[in-house]
C-alpha cells in the first residue's frame, strides 16, 4: 500500500509544471524514504532528478517499493482538476496498474476521486557521481529565468562564466550580442534576493538556451536557484522545494570538438 498526502496540492501542480516541458512520461519510484524520479529528455541532453522526502509529506506510507510509470500529460489533466487550496492524496495498491488521486477541499465539503492508468516504462538510471564543483552560484530564481529568456533572443546557446567577481551570461547571434553581469551582493536584507558565489576555480561553459528555459519552469517552486559548474561536465540547476525536497536538472555542455 502506498499513500502520500500533501495539504497544498499547489506544490504537486508546480512540480508537474517543472518537468512536463522536458518529459512526456516518467516513472515515480516510491519507497519508505520518499518519491524519486530520474529521467532524460528525448534528446538525452538533459536529465531531471526529483526527490520528495517522505517526512515532507503531511502523511506518507509506503509498505513496499513501487515504481509508477505515468504519462505526464494525463497527470497534468488530473492535477488541473484540483483546486489551488485542495489537499491531494495519491494512493496505490501493491502491484497496482492504477494510481488514485483524491482532492479534498477545506472542511471536506467537496471530495473528488480520479484514477489514472499506470504505464510500464523502460527506465535507465544514470549514475551521477558526487562532484566537487568549481563554481556554485546562488541567485534569485526569477532573475535567472529573466536572463535565460532575454539571452535566448540572441542565439541558441549562452555562455555562463564565473569568476570570484561575479557571474556573466552571454549570447551572440545574427542580431548582435548580449552580456549580463551579476556581481555578488554585498549585503541584502532578504536572503532570497542575494547573489552568492562560491568559487574554487573560474569556469566558462556553453549551454543550449532551450533547455535552460525549460528548467526555469521550476521558478514558482523556489525563490532561489543554485547553479553548480565545473569545466566540461554537466551544469546542475537546483531548485529547493521547501521542506519537501528538490528538483535538479543536469545539462550537458557544448564542447569544442
Amino acid at each position: 500500500m502506498f499513500e502520500a498526502r500533501l495539504v497544498q496540492s499547489a506544490i504537486l501542480k508546480k512540480v508537474l509544471e517543472a518537468i512536463k516541458d522536458l518529459l512526456t512520461e516518467a516513472t515515480f519510484d516510491c519507497s519508505d524514504s520518499g518519491i524519486q524520479l530520474q529521467a532524460m529528455d528525448n534528446a538525452h541532453v538533459s536529465l531531471v532528478s526529483l526527490n520528495l522526502r517522505s517526512d515532507g509529506f503531511d502523511k506518507y506510507r509506503c509498505d513496499r517499493n513501487l515504481s509508477m510509470g505515468m504519462n505526464l500529460g494525463n497527470m497534468t489533466k488530473i492535477m488541473k482538476c484540483a483546486g489551488a487550496e485542495d489537499t491531494v492524496t495519491m494512493k496505490a495498491q501493491d502491484n497496482a496498474d492504477v494510481v488514485a488521486f483524491m482532492f479534498e477541499s477545506k472542511n471536506q465539503e467537496k471530495v473528488s476521486d480520479y484514477e489514472m492508468k499506470l504505464m510500464n516504462l523502460d527506465q535507465e538510471h544514470l549514475g551521477i557521481p558526487e562532484t566537487d564543483y568549481s563554481c556554485i552560484v546562488k541567485m534569485p530564481s526569477q532573475e535567472f529565468a529573466r536572463i535565460c529568456r532575454d539571452l535566448s533572443q540572441f542565439g541558441e546557446s549562452m555562455a555562463i562564466s564565473c569568476t570570484k567577481e561575479g557571474v556573466k551570461f552571454s549570447s551572440a547571434g545574427d542580431i548582435g550580442s548580449a552580456n549580463i553581469k551579476l556581481a555578488q551582493t554585498a549585503n541584502v536584507d532578504a536572503e532570497e534576493e542575494a547573489v552568492v558565489i562560491e568559487m574554487q576555480e573560474p569556469v566558462s561553459l556553453t549551454f543550449a538556451c532551450r533547455y535552460l528555459n525549460s528548467f526555469t519552469k521550476a521558478t514558482p517552486l523556489s525563490a532561489q536557484v543554485q547553479l553548480s559548474m565545473s569545466a566540461d561536465v554537466p551544469l546542475v540547476v537546483e531548485y529547493k522545494i521547501g521542506e519537501l525536497g528538490h528538483i535538479r536538472y543536469y545539462l550537458a555542455p557544448k564542447i569544442e570538438d
Partner: peptide, 14 residues
C-alpha cells in the same frame, strides 16, 4: 565550433 554533448557521455547507465 562547439558540439552538443549528451548526458550519457558523462554519466554511465546503472
Amino acid at each position: 565550433k562547439k558540439r552538443q554533448f549528451n548526458i550519457h557521455h558523462f554519466y554511465l547507465g546503472q
